[in-house]
């Protein structure tokens, strides 16, 4: 009696654990399948001309040069605006306002913004900027991306500064070092690897964002350095080309998708390696 009960319990356990292995294979298998298809389809169109030619009209040859350049400009702009704001906010939360109710509220709201639908950010920027100036532009895209960057950087900056040993702060205070100089000269330097990680993660986050650009930067068939005009960018080109009926546009969409994925993965892996080095010290 006791033995059969035991065998049954073990059997049930074995079956359920088997199911969890199946779930792992199923989940990771699908993700591997997606990456595999992406590499296969994307590589097929990966030629030098991708980096040297403009996005073509349907039926003719071309590349993604203007889209890549536009993406670089807008991502750089967004991070250049968003990262400093995020860092300063993180500094306040970890140093001046540690443990206060205000910091708690900001952290809570920040975490919500971190996962808030990005298309809402696009609508917001459309309302406050695009609708006011009456045209789509790279500037609007940069504002939207900057808003996406802030929460990521706030989160990592605060986390990283909280890890700075309290003894350092006490030593600095004992020498009469002003708080602001301690933060800038010591705390930020100690936490540097973590801060860079945060910025890299933010870049990875926004470089593939499409939804906030739909009604802000729009896109542009041609070369444009003028951020006051609609500006081409990879995610929007992928979106438009993938939904087009033209085979060569669809091919460009796949190749663009591969480029974005590689960039995002490279950034995340670098961030991971950096933060691993930072914590080992």
């Amino acid at each position: 009696m006791n033995r059969t009960l035991r065998t049954r319990r073990q059997l049930v356990s074995l079956v359920m654990m088997g199911l969890s292995v199946v779930a792992t294979l199923f989940g990771l298998g699908f993700l591997a399948l997606i990456l595999g298809t992406l590499i296969f389809k994307g590589l097929a169109g990966l030629k030098l001309s991708i980096f040297t030619q403009m996005t073509p009209p349907p039926g003719s040859k071309g590349g993604l040069l203007n889209a890549i350049a536009g993406s670089l400009v807008m991502t750089t702009g967004g991070v250049a605006i968003g990262a400093p704001i995020g860092m300063l906010a993180g500094i306040y939360m970890a140093e001046y306002g540690r443990g206060t109710r205000f910091t708690m509220i900001v952290r809570f709201i920040n975490d919500i913004l971190l996962s808030a639908p990005s298309i809402i950010i696009g609508l917001f920027v459309y309302e406050i900027y695009v609708a006011e100036v009456h045209h789509f532009s790279g500037v609007a895209g940069i504002i939207a991306l900057a808003i996406m960057v802030v929460p990521v950087v706030v989160r990592t900056t605060e986390d990283m500064l909280l890890l700075v040993p309290g003894t350092l702060k006490e030593a600095a205070a004992a020498m009469g070092l002003p708080r602001s100089i301690f933060i800038r000269r010591i705390a930020l330097r100690v936490a540097r690897a973590g801060l860079i990680t945060g910025v890299l993660l933010a870049v990875a986050r926004v470089s593939g964002e499409t939804a906030p650009l739909l009604f802000t930067a729009l896109s542009n068939q041609f070369w444009s350095w003028n951020i006051n005009e609609p500006i081409a960018n990879l995610p929007m080109v992928i979106f438009n080309f993938a939904l087009s009926p033209y085979k060569d546009w669809q091919q460009l969409a796949w190749t663009g998708a591969l480029l974005i994925t590689c960039a995002v993965l490279a950034l995340s892996i670098t961030a991971r390696v950096l933060s691993a080095q930072g914590t080992r010290k």
Binding site: L31, I34, G208, P235, A242, A257, I260
Partner: peptide, 15 residues
């Protein structure tokens, strides 16, 4: 994989 942009899933889904 959690960091892969969602448009990648979209284009895979479509094609």
């Amino acid at each position: 994989l959690a960091g892969i942009p969602s448009i990648i899933y979209g284009i895979w889904g479509l094609f």
